[in-house]
Structures are given as C-alpha cells and as structure tokens.
C-alpha cells in the first residue's frame, strides 16, 4: 500500500464533491485527505486527494474518476517534482510555566500563535506532512486539546501547469 497524491480538476458545481466522495466509499478506496477549492478559473475547482493503494487500485481510482462527467483532468503528483503543503490549527494546553517553551518550539517551526487564553495557545502551522507530524509530536506532551487540518494541497514544481500536463 503506497500513498499517492492526485490533483483533480472538476467542474465548480454543486453535487461534484458528493459524486467523488461517493465513488471512493462505494468502491472501497481509502482516502487519507481531500482538499478542494476554486482555481484561477472560477468555473473550475481543484481537488488534492491523498489515497492509499497499490498500482491496481490507483489505476482504478483514476479511471473511475475520469468516468465522472464533472471531472476534467487528473494527474498524479510525484513527490520529487511537486510541492506539498498542509495547514494545521492546534489548540494546546499552556500554563504560565511552560508557555515560553511552547513559544520557542513555535518559532523554531516558523509557526505562529494566533490566539491565547489563560490555559491555552492556538498555533497555526503550514508545512508538508513530515514537518506537521514532527511539530505535533512535540506539542503532544503539553496536551493537545483540539486539532484541525486542511488536508494536503499540492502543485507541480517549476513552470509546469496541470492544464499543459499530459495525462498518463
């Protein structure tokens, strides 16, 4: 089972997300994350879908997605030629004693504190999944009260655009 990142252009219409998520659930494909939003063309949305599966599953996912009329284009993003980012918001317990050490870790990771209370800090961090994982490991001992992640977003490196990329 390998992790694959698909970048999918779809019509920006209601019902599209349901068609895609329904396809994954009824065919038993495992989805790690799905991030979606409008693109430079407001009639098109772009989804970044992280899936688990062997080559057979990956091929089936791409073919079944392609069968959906609302799906315009699908490419696989290889790690060596792509950039990946995810945003995470984490609300961590903070006391007067440990607040400084948390702040130190936050600055090492170039994260930022976006909300403070007597007993918590809310931290925003952007990065690839390894960086986020490492950060969360360091936060865990302090007590993570809440965590929310956007799922991975990704683009190809350099001047390559999805519209010019030939689908394999």
């Amino acid at each position: 089972m390998n992790r694959h990142i698909l970048s999918v252009l779809v019509e920006n219409q209601s019902g599209v997300l349901s068609r895609i998520s329904g396809l994954f659930s009824r065919r038993g494909y495992n989805i790690d994350s799905l991030a979606v939003g409008e693109t430079e063309d407001p009639t098109v949305s772009r989804m970044t879908i992280v899936v688990q599966g062997d080559d057979y599953i990956l091929e089936q996912i791409k073919k079944q997605l392609n069968k959906l009329i609302d799906v315009i284009k699908i490419i696989s993003l290889a790690p060596n030629v792509s950039v990946f980012r995810e945003l995470v918001l984490v609300k961590v317990s903070a006391t007067e004693k440990n607040r400084a050490s948390i702040t130190e870790i936050v600055s090492i990771f170039r994260a930022s504190i976006i909300d403070v209370s007597n007993s918590t800090l809310t931290v925003e961090l952007t990065g690839d999944q390894e960086k986020i994982q490492a950060f969360l490991e360091l936060m865990r001992p302090y007590g993570i009260k809440e965590l929310v992640r956007t799922g991975l977003s990704a683009l190809q490196r350099g001047d390559t655009q999805i519209s010019q990329t030939v689908t394999e």
Binding site: E59, K63, N66
Partner: peptide, 8 residues
C-alpha cells in the same frame, strides 16, 4: 469503449 473496464 470504457477505459475503466480494461484491467478491472
């Protein structure tokens, strides 16, 4: 005619 049938 349906590429998704090939290899399924």
């Amino acid at each position: 005619i349906d590429p998704a049938e090939i290899g399924k």
